[in-house]
Design a protein around this nucleic acid. Structure first.
Lengths: 214, 214
DNA sequence: CCCGAAAGTGAAAATATATTCACCAAGCCC
DNA sequence: GGGCTTGGTGAATATATTTTCACTTTCGGG
């Protein structure tokens, strides 16, 4: 299993992934620097070297745009012809949550017992976008069964799937002092707080189950 | 409608397309030259400029791997939920014809009247890979309804879908002097002939219909 | 308090890649 | 026969990109 990434390393990784999807080619070090406000290509170079060392990417030495993502086969979880199952959502921004189910990236068959008597029509599958909940045994890449709910219906302390801008993560939810708080379960990640109407975060719903490929 | 390509230009275009699919990034001019036995990067540069001028690709000036294909959205003909229809075959090599139906790129609904009483289970959809049959009103990108048949069952003069290595094209078929002949209907393309057991060509079958998006 | 890891800065050097220049050959059309 | 288009050659130039070097700051753990 791959060593987990720091928050900044994860940002670099997600930037690369997003760039590849958008431009159909990997970014240069300079472009990564521009995208993440890093002025020195050496700073980017070090972060990228860390991603390679940890097995998240590969690099072709001395080649322009020589970064390649590992495990990028989108067909790995493509639609099979078994019974209908839950939609695996594609990348969505926190300010456009209506697009969550618009074009699923695929579907994942889910044993109904994992749904804990919730309505399957109200559930969807998302993937955890970081290691912020490592302390709770949830890792980057895990499949999450999420029951869509408004944050008003959540008790404090509930595990939620939340979109921070374009990254979907799991956090423990609290509503206090007129703000929404999201606590990670890992000391290298920071708690974040938002005004309830902020476009920078969107609570997708309650995490009902986790599935992981080993 | 885009101006049609010469044979060599089409080879460059198909090389780029194949490279993008295989490497998840566009090739450099040097790589294209290596792939098509062109020693001078200027020779490649000219061919690539022609593709851009004719609207098949775009180029970002002075940028490494700055070639981008136009109209590469694979979802344009993705599976819809209408009745089952014919499989749209993915790229296949002439020496591995058993892979033709292995992983269809999609499906295309086909009016049964286009099949001319042939068994739909024996038909598939392919896309014409060049403009070699322009004289017969068949153009690169056209959808072909192909009835899979062995070449022995074909009359001379039949329109066939044939794989030349990794490129699928339409040609008029003749069997003469112990060889298979494939005649284009365009003066800038060459007739080709193969021994019947050559791995460099494979006759997919008889072209039953053509469909085109305008 | 010190050390190591992580995340940077700025600059220089090495290498890759795109573009331009001058030229040649073949084929087609007028 | 000449002109134009297409498809090259080899080389030089310009620009992009990666890699390396020497350094600094912050933070966490021992």
């Amino acid at each position: 299993m791959r060593t987990r990434l720091t928050e900044r390393q994860n940002q670099v990784y997600e930037y690369i992934r997003s760039y590849v999807r958008k431009h159909s080619k990997p970014p240069t070090l300079k472009e990564i620097g521009r995208g993440l406000a890093i002025r020195s290509t050496n700073g980017v170079h070090k972060l990228v070297a860390a991603l390679e060392k940890k097995g998240y990417i590969t690099k072709t030495p001395n080649e322009a745009r020589g970064i390649a993502l590992v495990d990028t086969d989108p067909d790995a979880y493509a639609f099979d012809e078994g019974p209908p199952s839950l939609p695996l959502i594609s990348r969505t921004r926190s300010d456009a949550p209506e697009r969550l189910r618009l074009r699923p990236a695929g579907f994942l068959y889910t044993d109904p017992r994992l749904l804990d008597r919730t309505d399957p029509d109200e559930c969807l599958i998302a993937r955890a976008g970081d290691d912020g909940m490592n302390g709770d045994g949830i890792r980057k890449g895990d499949f999450l069964v999420v029951e869509e709910t408004d944050w008003q219906g959540l008790r404090n302390g509930t595990l939620v799937a939340v979109l921070f801008d374009e990254t979907l993560v799991v956090r423990r939810f609290d509503h206090a002092n007129g703000r929404l708080h999201f606590r990670p379960a890992d000391r290298t990640y920071n708690e974040e707080a938002f005004a309830p109407d902020s476009p920078d975060c969107y609570v997708v719903g309650r995490v009902r189950a986790v599935m992981r490929k080993l």
